[in-house]
Design a protein around this nucleic acid. Sequence first.
DNA 1: ATTTTCTTTGCAAACGATTGCGGGAATGTT
DNA 2: AACATTCCCGCAATCGTTTGCAAAGAAAAT
Lengths: 336, 336
Amino acid sequence: MKRITIKDLSELLNVSTSTISRALNDHPDISDATKKRVRDAAESMNYKANLQARFFRKKLSGLIALVLPEMNMFYTPSFIDGVNKALEDSPYSLVIFQSNNDVKQEKNIVEQCIQWAVEGVLIALSKNTTSVEHIQELEFAGIECLLFDKILSESQLHSICIDNVKAAEKGVELLFEHGHRNIVGIFGNRNLNITKERVMGYENVYIKHGLPVSYNHVVTVNEPEQLDFILPFILESSKVTGIFTMSDELLFYTLNNIRRMNLRIPEDMSLVSISDGILPNQSYPKITYVKDSGEKMGKSAMDTLIRQLEQKGASSKLTILSTDLVENHSVRSIDV
Amino acid sequence: MKRITIKDLSELLNVSTSTISRALNDHPDISDATKKRVRDAAESMNYKANLQARFFRKKLSGLIALVLPEMNMFYTPSFIDGVNKALEDSPYSLVIFQSNNDVKQEKNIVEQCIQWAVEGVLIALSKNTTSVEHIQELEFAGIECLLFDKILSESQLHSICIDNVKAAEKGVELLFEHGHRNIVGIFGNRNLNITKERVMGYENVYIKHGLPVSYNHVVTVNEPEQLDFILPFILESSKVTGIFTMSDELLFYTLNNIRRMNLRIPEDMSLVSISDGILPNQSYPKITYVKDSGEKMGKSAMDTLIRQLEQKGASSKLTILSTDLVENHSVRSIDV
DNA sequence: ATTTTCTTTGCAAACGATTGCGGGAATGTT
DNA sequence: AACATTCCCGCAATCGTTTGCAAAGAAAAT
């Protein structure tokens, strides 16, 4: 019931608490003989160090916070998986907060992070966050921050993301190579950097080929459910031969609408998406996609944050992850 | 840079640290006048309480651990969502650990929980966990535990789960009512309680109707990928008219196999699943399912754990959540 | 034999907050 | 005017661990 402390051990062995502490930490000042005595006693008494006390004394917390705006079924699980991998043999534990895309909650979380004296914060800003004062407050408190996914590029904060422009380019370019010219791009919330950049990638391909961008082919939705109303109209247009979706969630809704309208992939409609890969590989036929791996992102993000922690802010401000095209069977060739 | 402490405030205002502490905690011993002085000073100096020190002194940690065997795309996000909802206006923060279905890692996590002096642990045991010594070790350390999802019913530990038997019964019974008699049940790892109970539910329906259970209609797989090899044989059998899957993951793989074989739902094959509901509602046609809500489970679990914490273990050992049938369009009626 | 060096250990303060106890001043009661 | 209450506040210990410094004893060097 009562927890064994270093003091209990010291009384048992008739040595000071300092000796116990040093012995357990393998300090060179302590003789091998006493080290063994102490360790054996600790073992037999089932002593467990009190991390609270330890970290408190050391003015550390051993905590890294992960702040997410929401729990997304396609990205979050694999992302956390990656984060955990990076954390595996680190001395840090993971505290998770959820902002529900609410700026007020996000600020409240920042407050908690400061109070907890977390050592680092890995955060995807909420959709509605436009200013980064609260993040700077974190840095002012000596807490290392790293933004991912939803970053604000103008801000001078440490960030990590994939090369969104190139990722979109790769996907749309593939459709182009197969002869498609009427490609609908489906994107998320226009305010997000991630969206802007992927739209830019889409447009780049048209520009590169000297063709005009049809702006009614660029679809942006705030909520993916909106696709259930918009897509039927798009899919009815016989001109459109290919669709590019910028995320798994949008791909999910798009796929279901395609099925609802009894269209075949790729005969009636070609499809390419930026995706983690699970959904594309489990669909029939398998969907061609540009791999934006949640796990890779999670691992890289946590790895760089830990590196930041070890060499206080010495790392580069912006880390960009590359993506690869995974060709499956959702794109057909058409004559130009 | 340097953090403001209660001592800084006490020097600034020429009062003792005890007064500062009491003033900030609205202790009745302190006059309104000094309370105001202290609060104003704290505000202007941007003082933030050090939770580490506070909890350490109070012999508490303010931490609740969530231990998951893996990150599942269908269940985990909504579950964590629910957990966060329950945590929202509680004084606890959430620490997340992942056991990767490895007993050794699970024990290691338990160790960490003890060292951190977390106040409660919400845990889904790993697939390979058969003994609960390590959980008892937690309880012995005075930490409240609550098992969910993958529970061990024989153990005398606090647990929460849905009524698995009834949930399966509801699903299979619906197929029966619509005239189906050759129903294949698709289940997960046989060692898990959750599987055993759902299989039992499946069998109960046959028994109730005085029919024998065909054991080649009860399919159990350890990894859902195995379905890609097994399902083609099952789906070719013209006798089978209905499928019952016990989880979203299995439904996912089943759906894709049905599509691969160009079978129509429900004309060629009727389908019912236990599910959170996202996948069934986004498929075409919408799949009929027994709602096992991850969010509801997460919220209920964390709510009861917090209740346990407040009235030290006074709650009932086993909490069982009910489920509802959601009828969509994946079951056709056939003549008996 | 004296000094120096090295090895091994203990003393006590510190980290930041909380809290039981005691006491001085102000107020109230006869 | 003497006493009892009440109101505010400070002293000092405490939580469990780490760590700078001192020190005692043994070994080595002179």
